[in-house]
Amino acid sequence: MVSSNSELAYNSKIEGDVVVSRADAVINWIRTNSMWPMPMGLACCAIELMAVASSRFDIARFGAEVMRFSPRQADVMIVSGTVTYKMASAVRRIYDQMPHPKWVIAMGACASSGGMYRSYATLQGVDRIIPVDVYVSGCPPRPEALLDALMKLQEKVKREPSAHNLLISK
């Protein structure tokens, strides 16, 4: 009897194209290199955010150039600017509309702590309404600082037990 499959154990053509790895490493590698930002540009920090996306600083080098103005398609919300109490509800609602997994960068003094706006109208730090992963100091921060924040966030994501989280979320 003649079998069409004459391979018994090792096929170098197939095995040569297979890389063995952990699920966490693969998932986190994909996530870190395609973080689509939700640009929550609320004040002057948003100008620096635009510079980061432009050619001189070019956040595309880190896979985060796809600014998604729809929260459904975004992974990381970059809160760049002063969060007033009137806007805080909208920020929280947009955060809630982002699909998991999601992260938040608080860019600049105002988003991190209220900054110089110690007044009746300003939320004293966006971490009062949404969980923040990385804080960036500066008023406004240099574009390099935001790139550094993105790299810090990528390092953090690489340490996440993503496969475990996917299993327990069911």
């Binding site: 109490y85 805080a88 609602r93 209220g114 706006y117 300003t122 004293q124 009062r128 309404i129």
Partner: peptide, 12 residues
């Protein structure tokens, strides 16, 4: 949002 976050407008 106030019920979800339990945040109030507080004196700065």
């Amino acid at each position: 949002v106030a019920a979800e976050t339990k945040v109030k407008v507080k004196p700065a």
